[in-house]
Design a protein around this nucleic acid. Structure first.
Length: 479
RNA sequence: GUCCCCAUCGUCUAGUCUGGCCUAGGACGCCGCCCUUUCAAGGCGGCAACACGGGUUCAAAUCCCGUUGGGGACGCCA
């Protein structure tokens, strides 16, 4: 039987990393087993579901490359099916009407909580005589339908946790259909999973305690029970379930922060799963080849952004310059640094700029920021850098000498400019560093940069002279 | 409170099923060294963990029991 899995988010918020990881494992399992990955939007909570959230979730999935084979199906449009399933359960006497007032039930629940005792629905309405039930229905008394939990134990072999068992007596007769006739979560999920012929339910640990109820529903319906796999949750640094309190959780926030989808994908896969051989840099194809539930751990995993950042830097380093250019184009435009020539006559030059910036960038935003000094003369001198390397009163005079040397050097390449600078330093009887550091500030405004001779040649002779002149002027003015 | 799940470096983990090869391996981060004009990248090295207590066994990170700690779920939400 071919594998069919689903990702079933509620559109009550953006796609967060926890949901993304659940989707990712479903996707990986579908792809490794040549199965079908289905997307189902569980939008039956009209109060909280928002259409724009559905759009945001789809966008997040697409960005991560988690393409689905079927759907999106909308659970709210499948209510008739859910109700029909509920009817079946009534017919087989697995469900019974409950006339209890929600407010009254809530009161009793709260009372029990106050006393610190456990409370579960005491089956008041199950004890009702058939005639009494008929009478109440006839007079139109509102009623929900509850599932009649059978005696015994419910257990299954979880793909992650192994044999897991619940005593049915710890379960209460949960509601299947509300008094307004609408189906509840358990009924909808099981109806849909049955209808969609889902073979493997892969979801978060937080659904562990829902599983026995759902298994009971499959049994009552006489339907085959899928295999379950409950993934441990993603935790914040305080070891509690990752949430907004911990900072960025929406995948789109990571996109905005300069992360590559490939890196987040790889990172999320590694959170709770291990290939076993210690490799960490595992691109999508490699993940598909290696994924198996064998490698999934049982323990919740703390989301470590530093490791994500490291992985991101690995992906940036492996990325061709042209692809990086495309990826940061938007941000360059936003900074007013984009020019069509960057993919025209200056294309090769710009790719070289990006190549030099690559190894010292951890996020795309670093690239966009650091390429600024190559795209514009308009930058300020970092005060710390100036304090460190421009204090010497001889600086202006030395820069004049360096300027002259650079004006004449031929060709204007890394080797020749370096030789010229070293010769100029030797001529003045000073260490090359005395020229290099001020030159770096002249060219970049910073105390740190890529190799200075690389910067020099990328900025070009004309640009370099202009920037050195500017430094000399600022030095003389400061006197 | 009840039920369920979990427990190896700060973090992600390998090893646990099928006890011995574990003096517990790798990765991120951190520290140091090399390279070097700075910062990265890269290379080399260092610090750092089997929660605790019993048991089984010739032998326990590994099997069993308990304790402690952490998490999740307990809706006419999904």
């Amino acid at each position: 039987m071919s594998v069919r899995v689903r990702f079933a988010p509620s559109p009550t918020g953006y796609l967060h990393v926890g949901g993304a990881r659940t989707a990712l494992f479903n996707w990986l399992f579908a792809r490794t087993s040549r199965g079908v990955f289905i997307l189902r939007i569980e939008d039956t909570d009209l109060e909280r579901s928002k259409e724009e959230m559905t759009a945001a979730i789809l966008e997040g999935l697409r960005w991560l490359g988690l393409d689905w084979d079927e759907g999106p199906y909308y659970q709210s449009q499948r209510r008739d099916l859910h109700r029909a399933t509920g009817l079946k359960l009534q017919a087989s006497r697995s469900a019974y009407p409950c006339f209890c007032e929600p407010a009254e039930l809530q009161r009793r629940r709260q009372e029990a909580e106050r006393l610190g005792v456990t409370w579960k629905y005491e089956r008041t309405c199950l004890a009702l005589l058939p005639e009494e039930v008929q009478r109440r229905v006839a007079v139109g008394q509102p009623h929900a339908f509850r599932f009649r939990v059978p005696e015994g134990v419910t257990s299954w072999s979880d793909r992650v946790h192994g044999r897991t068992t619940f005593a049915n007596e710890t379960l209460e007769d949960f509601i299947l259909l509300r008094s307004d006739g609408t189906p509840t979560y358990h009924l909808s999920v099981v109806s849909d999973d049955v209808d969609m012929k889902i073979t493997d339910v892969i979801r978060g640990d937080d659904h562990l305690s829902n599983t026995p109820k759902q298994i009971l529903l499959y049994r009552a319906l006489g339907e085959p029970i899928p295999t379950f796999a409950h993934l441990p949750l993603i935790l914040g640094p305080d070891k509690k379930r990752l949430s907004k309190r911990h900072g960025a959780v929406a995948v789109t926030e990571y996109r905005e922060a300069g992360y590559l989808p490939e890196a987040l994908f790889n990172f999320l896969a590694l959170l709770g799963w291990s290939s076993g051989d210690g490799r960490e840099f595992l691109p999508r194809e490699e993940l598909i080849r290696r994924f198996s539930f064998e490698g999934v751990g049982k323990k919740g995993a703390v989301f470590d952004e530093q490791k994500l950042e490291w992985l991101n830097s690995q992906y940036i380093n492996a990325m061709p310059a042209a692809a990086i250019r495309e990826a940061i184009r938007g941000e360059l435009k936003a900074r007013g640094l984009w020019d069509a020539s960057l993919e025209g006559e200056r294309r090769e030059w710009f790719e070289k700029v990006l190549e030099t910036l690559k190894p010292r960038s951890r996020k795309l935003s670093d690239l966009a920021r650091d390429s600024a000094i190559f795209l514009s003369d308009d930058f300020a001198y970092d005060p710390g850098a100036a304090a460190k390397h421009l204090g010497d009163p001889e600086t202006a005079r030395r820069m004049v000498a360096l300027r002259d040397a650079l004006e004449r050097v031929e060709p204007f390449d890394e080797a020749a400019t370096e030789a010229a600078l070293r010769k100029a330093a030797a001529g003045m009887g000073i260490a090359a560093a005395k020229l290099i550091h001020p030159l770096r500030i002249a060219l970049t405004g910073q105390a740190v940069s890529p190799g200075i001779f690389t910067v020099l040649t990328l900025v070009g002779r004309e640009g370099a002279l202009r920037r050195i002149d500017r430094l000399i002027r600022s030095q003389e003015l400061g006197r």
